[in-house]
Design a protein around this nucleic acid. Structure first.
Lengths: 348, 348
DNA sequence: CGGGACATTGAACCTAGTCAACGTCGGTGG
DNA sequence: CCACCGACGTTGACTAGGTTCAATGTCCCG
């Protein structure tokens, strides 16, 4: 089956040229010269890949990407930016927003075709990759007889790669689905009035993201950011609703997840309230150890400070103390836990 | 229909004497001379009221009361202590554990009969009282067609009066049902290692208590204590499970409650972490105002301290400041909010 | 190998906790 | 009905722990 490519580019020469090349290469091509029309075309008939200029009047490339990422049907479509600007900052901004690649104009035919093919191939690779995470989801649904629903969900797997430091959703965004983290690591944070961050959660492979926003039908209460390159699977809201209504087991499972979450939050509250800095630090390290299942991990002082609700300087000092006491080892931003037992028993 | 009375009393003379009186008065009487047997009798054939001695070998009266409160079928049965000790401390301990009355030996026939009748009458009164709370539950269940289930639950309404400062459940207890608070006010707290309390929640009429323990099938993560005399309705675990499996709407409703709970806990976490004492105090007062729907309320400095995670002395000081600034009024343990707007906008 | 981001260390400051003494309220018993 | 007691609330003085500001050191990426 022919792959559909959507091109959004306001320069007529370039657009026509690209269309010609792609049609020769056997793709079906849709095109437009402005961002708004591009978004609408994408919604009407989901393409397999999108090429998009950054600098455009009215709605620019970043805006297009943002709007597309709001809808489940377009969120997973590979997105390649076309631009004359090869500057560092723009490139990063685009990648952080979730673009998959970047072509600097002028580009030759081979470059273009190679980029498209590599993206399409990668996307297919991901479909196969889905790992245990989704199998677990299958289990969950299949427990009783949700076979049809199960098939449907898996067939329509939407996936999305997220790069380090990229924001998955912002506090206040209305969610469009539930995320299942397939690989990587993600943190959720809340911002205090003065700009300080508090980490409300840290997630690893097989964890669900945004459960409570999704299930309470409200906007996200925190901001989710990738701590490292991650792969996410989106379960669209409507399908989730359907599952919940059809299969009590699914609802029970989510209820359990939520209830445990509350438990954890309450524990954290107690710690935050009355524990000394040493104790809070120890607990933060233990949480990291538990969820990475390893005795060493990389984390910035800033993130640690946000986890334990203290100043970065205090983190530094406390870690130095811990090192002097033989509890941990540290080099740069890598921390290795040496004496788990004593950390666990840390007195207040 | 004849009412069943169970008597647990190790002194043979007194027991025989009471049995005689009660049978003359038209009650069906079961009796035993030790606590263990008493508990078993109560489980086998739920009595309408229980009279129980405190001082007994093996299992004393407090133990009996505790064991009975663990089972849904006996939790709501009126319980009267019989004892020679008229001392203040014992009386309070008994009442705090949930005893409904106290008879000091020696007591005469009239005293005994009056106590029993008053208890039975009160219990019946409660059945009628149930107020809007349960009607709301009905709504919830009836939304679709859960008529049968609905009827069943309402028929088997278990109710229980809880006196001020009485503990409803302890952290670590395995729950046997979900509580619906019909009237009164309840707090849930967690204890830090050093004994300081942190209030994790405060509940008013129509709120559910212990949702997350119940739904995650684990022990309670906090201790629930009545802030004033309260009336609770117990929805036994099994019925809850049934409802959840039969009616997705019910599950959805609870999911929403849980999700909102998480939201609140996260907000609290952020406050606890970075806010000044003044701000924390203001937030605590606002929370009290919101949930009592009144501008004045009675609360001890200790409870306030547990809510805002600070020392009672600091609470005193901060309240004094607030009063001087015209934000609140206070006399004894009653606080009146004067300037809601400024409290809300309290800067950090 | 240079620059910027990240980490460490020192010193000053300040908030809120602790300890202690005193005041106030409400309930109980004489 | 009043006096007393214990629980609860207030205020002051002192102190410890953590934040802030500032300077310096170290790592990593291009």
């Amino acid at each position: 089956m022919k792959k559909k490519v959507l091109i959004i580019e306001d320069n007529d020469d370039i657009r026509e040229n690209v269309i010609e090349i792609l049609e020769l290469a056997g793709y079906t091509v849709a095109s437009t010269n402005n961002g708004k029309a591009g978004v609408e075309l994408a919604f009407q008939d989901t393409p397999d890949i999108i090429l998009c200029d950054i600098m455009m009047p009215e709605l620019d490339g970043y805006g297009v990407l943002y709007l597309l990422s709001k809808r489940p049907e377009t969120i997973a479509v590979p997105f390649i930016f076309l631009t004359a600007k090869a500057e560092h900052f723009d490139r990063r901004k685009g990648m952080e927003m979730g673009a998959d690649d970047y072509l600097t104009k002028p580009f030759d035919d081979m470059e273009l075709l190679a980029a498209i093919e590599s993206r399409l191939k990668k996307k297919e690779g991901q479909q196969a990759f889905y790992s245990k995470s989704l199998d677990k989801l299958n289990m969950l649904v299949a427990k009783k007889d949700g076979l049809a629903a199960l098939k449907k969900i898996i067939e329509e797997r939407k996936s999305r790669t997220i790069k380090k430091n990229q924001v998955i959703y912002y506090e206040g965004d209305k969610g469009n689905g539930l995320y299942l983290l397939i690989s990587g690591k993600v943190k959720t944070i809340k911002l205090a009035e003065d700009g300080r961050e508090l980490m409300t959660g840290i997630y690893a492979a097989d964890d669900y993201l945004g459960i409570n926003a999704m299930l309470s039908n409200e906007a996200y209460a925190d901001t989710a950011t990738a701590l490292e390159d991650s792969l996410l699977c989106l379960i669209p809201k409507e399908q989730l609703e359907e599952l919940l209504n059809l299969y009590p087991e699914v609802a029970r499972e989510f209820i359990k997840l939520l209830a445990n979450d509350i438990r954890e939050k309450e524990d954290q509250l107690l710690q935050m309230a009355y524990n000394s800095v040493r104790k809070k630090m120890a607990e933060a390290l233990l949480r990291l150890q538990r969820q990475s299942n390893a005795d060493n991990f990389k984390i910035t002082r800033e993130d640690l400070a946000a986890m334990a609700a203290m100043a970065t300087e205090t983190v530094s000092r406390t870690l130095s103390d811990f090192k002097a006491e033989g509890l941990i080892e540290k080099t740069g931003s890598t921390i290795t836990i040496l004496d788990l037992a004593r950390l666990t028993k840390m007195k207040n």
